[in-house]
């Protein structure tokens, strides 16, 4: 695969088959980064540990990290989009986020 050459080095795919990558370092709002050769515009600043879709994920599909589902997409998630509590839901229990 040549993908590794064309993906931003701040992204870490933890296991084969994962459809998200984890940020190894902060990516700032407004940056254009490469994911598998595709240029993606990052809309908001994202810190270490946050996730970006490395392929387009259909609503209802599993989001896969470490090779295992960590929940499902509640809407279509385009390649390069931030994957978090707004578009990913647990299949286990509802997680309540308090401001």
């Amino acid at each position: 695969m040549t993908d590794a050459l064309q993906t931003d080095p701040r992204l870490l795919v933890l296991a084969q088959g994962d459809n998200i990558a984890v940020l190894k370092a902060t990516i700032k709002a407004g940056e254009d980064i490469l994911i598998a050769g595709n240029e993606v515009h990052v809309g908001s600043t994202l810190g270490l540990g946050h996730k970006l879709a490395v392929v387009a994920i259909q609503g209802g599909d599993d989001v896969v990290k470490y090779g295992f589902p960590i929940g499902f997409a509640v809407a279509d998630i385009p390649l390069g989009a931030h994957v978090h509590v707004h578009n990913l839901a647990s299949r286990y229990t509802t997680v309540e986020i308090m401001e």
Binding site: V22, L23, L46, G47, L48, G49, H50, K51, V63, K65, F68, P69, I70, G71, V83, H84, V85, L88, A89, S90, R91, Y92, T93, V95, I97
Partner: peptide, 10 residues
């Protein structure tokens, strides 16, 4: 969640 974790499974 602030640290980027979205679900209990994750």
């Amino acid at each position: 969640a602030t640290g980027g974790l979205s679900t209990i499974e994750e």
